[in-house]
């Protein structure tokens, strides 16, 4: 599996999982869970493919981890910046785990996937 594809798949799976954890960390958000999971999945897919693309260009675990952390934090921040219907912001609850998910995807794309093959 090439790196952008691994990033996409892993980002998507972790996005779904991350969205569902809202049921545990913030039970009051249960009525909006479908929207949360879709948004989280989309965020995961986008972050994952970007991290995978970077891993394809730069073969360095430290660089992959830093970029993964930054992209994960950035997308999580965008989500956290949107207030809940009751007007609350969950910055730390979203940005911190989101950053770690970026780290995980950065690590996985640098370590496990092969480079994408150019086709003629």
């Amino acid at each position: 599996m090439n790196k952008p594809l691994l990033g996409l798949v892993l980002g998507g799976i972790l996005g779904v999982f991350d969205g569902l954890t809202a049921l545990v960390s913030a039970p009051e958000t249960a009525p909006q869970i479908v929207g949360i999971v879709i948004g989280s999945t989309f965020k995961g897919l986008l972050a994952g493919v970007l991290i995978g693309w970077f891993a394809n260009k730069v073969h360095s675990l430290p660089a992959g981890l830093i970029v993964g952390l930054a992209i994960g934090a950035f997308f999580a921040y965008l989500v956290a910046a949107m207030p809940t219907p009751d007007g609350k912001h969950y910055y730390w609850e979203i940005v911190l785990p989101g950053s770690v998910l970026g780290l995980i995807v950065g690590y996985a794309t640098q370590t496990y996937a092969g480079p994408s093959v150019a086709r003629s």
């Binding site: 960390s25 969950y90 609850e93 979203i94 785990p97 770690v100 995980i104 996985a108 370590t111």
Partner: peptide, 25 residues
């Protein structure tokens, strides 16, 4: 090892997030 550490870190973050979220509400 590294993958396990990262997943564990994520879970810790989630637990901390749940804890602080509960404390705040």
């Amino acid at each position: 090892r590294t993958a396990i550490i990262l997943v564990a870190a994520y879970l810790v973050m989630r637990i901390l997030a749940a804890y602080f979220s509960g404390a705040r509400s």
